[in-house]
Amino acid sequence: MSTRKRRVAADPGLGVDDAVRALILLLPRIVGRAKRARIPDELRGFSLAPRHLSLLSYLLFDGPMTVNDLATRLEVAPATVSLMVGELSRQGILERHEDDDDRRRRIVSIADAHRPAIDGWLARGATAWRNALEPLSPAERRLFVHTLRAYEEGIADGQEGPGDPL
């Protein structure tokens, strides 16, 4: 076990102000690293944005699904997802197929030609999250995810402005 992990594990408690300070210092580094994450050469010419990353993550981890299912998971309007899917389909990153059970519905999936590059691109983040979350109990993981969602909702409530710290 690394020294840093031992220090965190041995810490009897962290006050709210200390935790806030630590997170305000940590989150910009995390965001900065995420922004600097190197897009694979095979995907560089596609002008992928952060909104695409979430969509591609769902399709990679959960498999093919409908636009409505993606919209529900991404918590955006189906029209927004439809526009993203259309854009990525025209570029050949995604494919749309008829649903065998209901021919009116279209199933969206990652094109086989781009799956390895997308998988490699997302694997580093998934591995880092897995390593961070594995030592936690299911209740601790649930609390961690709940806390991040509460934070995201808090900064999305119109309280943030240009240049506000995370």
Rank of each mutant, 00 (worst) to 15 (best):
R7N: 13
I110Y: 01
T80P: 01
G158I: 06
A49R: 15
R36W: 08
L94R: 04
D102C: 06
R142L: 12
P78E: 06
G92A: 08
I30Y: 12
A9T: 12
L83V: 14
T66Q: 07
G45Q: 14
D11L: 15
G161P: 02
L25H: 12
E87L: 07
E160K: 11
E95M: 10
V145D: 04
D164C: 07
S54V: 08
S2H: 11
N68D: 15
I110G: 06
V76N: 01
D62T: 08
E140F: 00
P50A: 07
R104Y: 10
E75I: 07
E134C: 09
P28G: 01
G45E: 13
W129P: 03
N131Y: 10
G92H: 07
E134K: 11
S109W: 05
L23N: 05
R96D: 06
A22T: 12
H146C: 09
P135S: 02
F46K: 01
A128M: 14
D41L: 10
T66A: 06
K35N: 14
L53E: 11
A126Q: 10
V81Q: 01
L55Y: 02
L133K: 04
G161L: 07
L55H: 07
L23D: 08
Y151A: 15
D112G: 15
G86L: 02
D119M: 02
R106C: 01
A113I: 06
I93E: 01
G163D: 09
V145C: 00
S89W: 03
M1N: 12
G63S: 03
G125M: 01
P40Q: 03
G13R: 04
G154M: 00
L53A: 12
G13V: 03
D102A: 02
L53D: 05
R96W: 08
G15C: 09
L59I: 09
R36A: 14
V81I: 05
L136P: 09
P116T: 04
K35C: 13
M84A: 11
G32V: 05
R124V: 15
P138W: 04
G92Y: 06
V85G: 06
D41W: 10
R141D: 04
Q91M: 07
A71M: 00
A132K: 03
T3Y: 12
L27Q: 11
T72Q: 14
